[in-house]
Amino acid sequence: VSRIGPIVLPADRYYHPGHTWAKPVGAGEVLVGLDAFARRIVGDVRAIDLPSPGERVEQGRRLWTLRFDGRALDQPAPLDGEVIEVNEEILRHPERLREDPYERGWILKVRPRDEQCCVANLFASDLAKKWVELAIQDL
């Protein structure tokens, strides 16, 4: 685990510079969510605009939009693939992302386009930590 104050970045997943994560969980399935830095920046999420199962997603392109306190934040897909499941609990209760953006707070399950999922263009947690530190300095 990498930690910056209250912001934790578990070592068991890969991070996109747009503060989404990908965690392989089995045969051709990857969970996707937002990291604790994004969660802290936005505070309480009021709603999430999500793609539906069956939709294709592309690394770096908009995957979802978080809505909070009158503002919105688009976040990118961490990998190429197809959405196979939406976390309905988080969709109905996005405020629960505050408690746990990593386990119960996964947002989508994606079938990756290729076997090399989650290596290309993504950070391990130690590099993601440096990226978060830079952003915090900027703030």
Binding site: G18, G43, R61, R62, F68, R71
Partner: peptide, 25 residues
């Protein structure tokens, strides 16, 4: 880092921060 800091930034500050640290193609 302040909880929910985005809402305390000006619109211009937020846009600049968002584009740099939350890049979307």
């Amino acid at each position: 880092l302040m909880e929910g800091i985005a809402k305390y930034l000006s619109e211009a500050q937020w846009e600049q921060f968002r584009k740099r640290y939350f890049p979307v193609a």
